[in-house]
């Protein structure tokens, strides 16, 4: 089972991260602020992926299909509907993603394990093919650029084009959604997901429709990935074919595995490390994806609980109450 931290502990972390999040941009260069924005967006993408992998035990190689649908929908509606507001575009985008999640999820309903992994990859390829071929709408290989609408709150006019302003908007919205995801893992539905993973047969025999529970979770994670995708487009004021590619699905797998699937924090950590590492390595060498691949294999072989697992066991050692948590999710 997932290592569930106490509420107080999590709240403490939450407040700490929030303060850091608010204060951090004050002292750093614009470039760093943009990087932080990217981290927050990818943190949500990774958290949504881990709800599938870490909580439900469903390995998907196609999570970018929803990220991409979110990214493209925002770009398409902003290009075609004049006067559409910032939040209007985001709303339409997540609605479209939810519908896409439902359509794909209904076909995958009866599958889990290896066939599920294979099918998600195939569906991602389908979405990618649509995005490349449907040139008139998606711009094909050229991608789509947008003009970012400002946010008018009545009492304040937010210039979303400003990197720092956009950062705070992202922190507020995506940050609260990530917090909700954490709460979700404690709700009846979140617990149902965990229990289905642990003993699906018994869940059926105490009255749960486990296919429905899988579908609901799948649609929900699609919705979250779509939201992350829409902010990705808004952040870069551009979307390209890479947003919906299998490479993007690969990135989220790498982030989550590096960060660790065994805790809620793991994927967030993974997103931070991946993006900073990418930023750092790509300055030094063009071969940074190769290095990422080596790190990935190393983690799978030697650190199956990821960085968050490492930190957990290190912390426990420090506090002198080292004991093996037999509840490590992967080792069932």
């Amino acid at each position: 089972m997932i290592n569930q931290r106490s509420f107080a502990q999590f709240l403490g972390w939450g407040i700490f991260v929030l303060i850091v999040g608010v204060v951090l941009p004050l002292g750093v260069r614009q470039y760093q602020v943009a990087l932080l924005t990217e981290i927050i967006i990818f943190a949500l993408f990774a958290v949504s992926y881990n709800l599938l992998l870490g909580y439900a035990g469903l390995l998907s190689f196609g999570h970018a299909m929803f990220f991409g649908v979110g990214a493209y929908t925002v770009a398409i509606v902003l290009n075609h509907i004049s006067g559409l507001s910032f939040f209007g575009a985001v709303m339409i985008s997540v609605m479209v993603t939810t519908v896409a999640g439902f359509a794909v999820g209904s076909l995958l309903l009866r599958h889990k394990g290896v066939p599920f992994a294979l099918l998600t990859l195939a569906f991602n390829a389908l979405f990618y093919a649509i995005a490349t071929k449907w040139h008139s709408i998606t711009g094909g290989d050229d991608g789509l650029s947008i003009r970012l609408p400002d946010i008018n709150l009545g009492f304040a006019h937010l210039k979303t084009g400003d990197i720092t302003v956009f950062y705070y908007i992202t922190l507020l919205i995506i940050g609260s959604v990530i917090l909700f995801c954490w709460y979700f893992t404690r709700t009846a539905m979140g617990q149902t997901v965990l229990l289905v993973r642990e003993n699906e047969e018994r869940m059926k025999f105490v009255g749960y429709n486990t296919n429905v529970s899988r579908l609901i979770l799948f649609v929900f994670t699609g919705f979250l990935a779509g939201l992350a995708g829409s902010f990705y487009t808004l952040h870069y004021q551009f979307t390209s074919i890479s947003a919906i590619s299998i490479d993007m699905s690969t990135i989220v797998v790498l982030m989550v595995i590096i960060g660790g699937t065994g805790s809620f924090i793991g994927p967030i950590l993974g997103a931070c490390v991946y993006i900073y590492l990418q930023d750092f390595l790509s300055d030094i060498t063009d071969r940074w994806p190769f290095i990422m691949g080596l790190i990935f294999i190393f983690m799978i072989l030697y650190v199956p609980r990821g960085l968050s697992g490492l930190i957990d066991s290190f912390g426990e050692r420090l506090r002198g109450r080292w004991h093996l948590r037999s509840s490590v999710e992967m080792e069932e």
């Binding site: 290896v114 994806p289 691949g293 080596l294 799978i300 072989l301 080792e331």
Partner: peptide
């Protein structure tokens, strides 16, 4: 080596190999 950890790890390791081969 990862067989004991189950299918998820097995899939992930072949995924990692594919990734490394492509980058190589």
């Amino acid at each position: 080596r990862v067989h004991v950890y189950g299918h998820v790890q097995e899939l992930l390791i072949t995924f990692g190999v594919a990734y490394i081969i492509t980058e190589s």
